[in-house]
Simulated scan of single mutants.
Amino acid sequence: MLLPVVAGVDGSAESLAAAAWAAREARRRGQWLHLVHVWDRHPRQEHEMTGAAQRHLARRALRQAEERVRVECPDVRISDEQMEGPATAVLSKAADQADMIVLGSRGLSGFTGFLVGSVALGVVAKATRPVVLVRAGEVGSDEHVPTDDGDTSTDTGYRDVVLAVDLADACDEVIEFAFEAALLRHARLRAVHAWHAPGPLGLGAGDIGLVDDPWRGEEWLGFLKAVLQPWREKYPDVEVLETVVEDKPTTALVRASTGAGLLVVGHRLDERPVGPRTGPVTHAAIHHVGCPVAVVPHV
């Protein structure tokens, strides 16, 4: 069964941008778009008029999102749904029944990136399917490289897809998502691994720090190429650029994502999650990276 691309909408600018991004992704994947609005009745608000008002707001939010989508992707098949309940729980369940879920994040000015709400963080932490976060103001031309004179256009090629690779925990689900995204866009895939030279206190008992930093970097690059080689063979049409940098992973990813069209990071599912928890790299990416961020869960 073909699963939809789901977008959570609430009428905000960021959710409208998320709906438009989700529509473009659904078109690329040959899937349909399912718009979801969630409203939560307060225990003390049982009045019939309150429910009627919430349903009216839900219909308006869904209508606004559909109108935005129709402008950009008139050929995409759309369905919509109003759902009641705690937003994080409802959207997480919707994500589990989708190919992916796309949510908006309140964009801050300049390079400071995302101001992510508790709902988005909660869905990222709990969803078993990929979650894509899109900032307000994101438009279709942002996915494409500028023209020769610096103007924006949807007629140019796609910007790079950046993949964060942790060689200590390289996960097939994350890598495959990134390769598939690059293939659909005919975009280059830039795989990035950050390493940090251990200091004297970081060496274990009996360890001797003999490898010079340049050689250590080459060694990590060899590991990265070896990990990605099976995927190069599976996706021969995807141009891949492997990069290793000596830096903190969080800093390296923010820098590598400058000018990218999409960043793909992994998130390990906790068997017993306590609150909206994400790892430090994923946390930094969804807060500070300006392009859309796809968080792919894995076990």
Rank of each mutant, 00 (worst) to 15 (best):
L2M: 15
T152I: 03
L201Y: 15
V274M: 12
V116F: 02
V38I: 08
P280E: 07
G222L: 07
P146W: 08
H288I: 06
P214T: 08
L262W: 08
T147N: 14
Q45G: 09
E25I: 04
T112E: 10
A120Q: 02
W39S: 06
Q97N: 11
S15R: 01
E219F: 10
V102H: 03
V254W: 04
T251N: 11
P273I: 09
P198N: 11
E246T: 14
A22R: 03
G11L: 02
R277S: 01
T152E: 15
R77K: 12
G30Y: 02
S153R: 09
A94E: 08
A252L: 06
Q82G: 06
L33R: 04
L183N: 13
G222E: 12
A13L: 08
A187P: 00
G137R: 08
I175D: 04
I78V: 15
V139R: 09
K248G: 14
V134Q: 04
D151G: 14
L108H: 08
V36R: 01
V295S: 00
V131T: 05
G104M: 09
H56S: 05
A94I: 03
I208N: 00
Y235F: 14
I208F: 05
L221E: 11
E271P: 12
S109D: 12
V102D: 03
A187C: 11
P273K: 06
L203K: 05
S109M: 11
P292C: 06
V265L: 00
Q82F: 05
